[in-house]
Design a protein around this nucleic acid. Structure first.
Lengths: 215, 215
DNA sequence: ATGTGTGAAGAGCTTCACAGCC
DNA sequence: GGCTGTGAAGCTCTTCACACAT
């Protein structure tokens, strides 16, 4: 039971608000109106206000929302108030891209380990970590108490590696392999599936065309 | 106005059903029950039946659904019955990963062009295409009538390149740059935002824990 | 007997208008 | 005056039970 039953759409949007808010704070903006945040995120102002109302009364009537305290409130509600430690498994093209993304640190993630089975890659430094041998994966991840792993291994290896991660106590897997991982329900899996994403995108582009086309 | 107002959640799930259905067809399975498809996709059988009912009466009572004709029906409704031609812009780690993903062809996508501005990369063959110079991007994409582009350039370059793509007539952009592209409404943009995805994943893993923990 | 197709009830989210506070 | 906070209405999606087809 959540304290007051926050709609899941609302929590999804709260995550989404965080990035523009951090941009605003970097630009030195102190206050933001529901109208502005709505414009940036392409939702309605009333949606923003309703969503933020689940945080309590975090705004000031007649003035708007204080950006910094808004970020804090959101991160607190989303259990995102301390850095999340991440392990990357598989250092191919995708794994490298993730490891070299320095932005993650600014956004509350810390990549603390990377694994690969290729001797060519093991021992090399990529981003801020040195790639370790997959052989020690389970033990190392369990020892470090890693909650979230990014799975960037070939599809053929994915289910096996995922099981190992589950045994090591990982609770979340972000997978780039577009296949069923068959994990128990206590391990949450999200799959980045480009085919599905692209197909949806194209579909929606046709629908819009119909709506906006000349009558 | 859609013919009979298909819920957007339903179209989303229909895309999602396609992959397991194609696996089934590859395994030689001819018939599938709503119960099985539901188990694979982790939804309820009644959801599957309701979703598929928007395609018309595509199943046989007492028997199930014919896998092949189901795939055809779904692809037809989703306007996904012919290959989608794709251009990849930016051949760094992510661009390479996309270009080398041979799976896309099996799933209805054909990557026909790739662009980069780095002379080191231009002219090289990656996957099935030869990387072209970004200088010719607008002209080439317009000439080929590309509808969907995958944007895998550094964040700093993303908005500018996106504008060029828009001018070239692209209708859909799948972006890996986690930033606002500020496109007009006739260009649909989907952003692969790992930070948001990871944060949501971790959040949900905590909620589950509460529900399933020992009372 | 078995599994699909569907109307109607129910749950959840969105929207709007305006009260409340600065 | 200006913008937030919110209850209630409206809408969309989900769920369930059972009629219907094989």
């Amino acid at each position: 039971m959540t304290p007051k039953s926050v709609p899941s759409e609302t929590t999804d949007r709260l995550f989404f608000y965080l990035r523009p808010l951090m941009c605003l704070v970097n630009e030195g903006t102190e206050t933001v109106l529901s109208r502005e945040l709505a414009r940036i995120c392409r939702v309605k102002p009333s949606v923003v206000r309703k969503d933020l109302s689940y945080l309590g009364s975090v705004g000031t009537r007649g003035v708007g929302y204080n950006v910094k305290s808004l970020i804090e409130s959101i991160r607190s509600m989303l259990r995102f108030d301390q850095d999340i430690r991440v392990a990357v498994v598989g250092v191919g093209n995708i794994g490298r891209a993730v490891l070299e993304q320095s932005r993650f640190e600014l956004e509350g993630f810390r990549i603390v380990m990377a694994f690969d089975s290729d001797p060519e890659v093991v021992g090399r430094r990529v981003g801020k970590v040195v790639v370790e041998d997959s052989a020690g994966l389970e033990e190392r991840i369990e020892a470090e108490g890693i909650r979230l792993a990014i799975l960037a291994v070939p599809e053929s290896a994915a289910p096996k590696v995922a099981r190992t991660l589950g045994n090591a106590g990982v609770k979340c897997i972000l997978s780039f392999a577009p296949c069923e991982l068959a994990m128990p329900s206590n391990v949450k899996v999200t799959c980045i599936d480009l085919s599905v994403t692209m197909a949806r995108l194209v579909y929606h582009s046709y629908s819009e065309e119909q709506c906006e086309g000349p009558g």
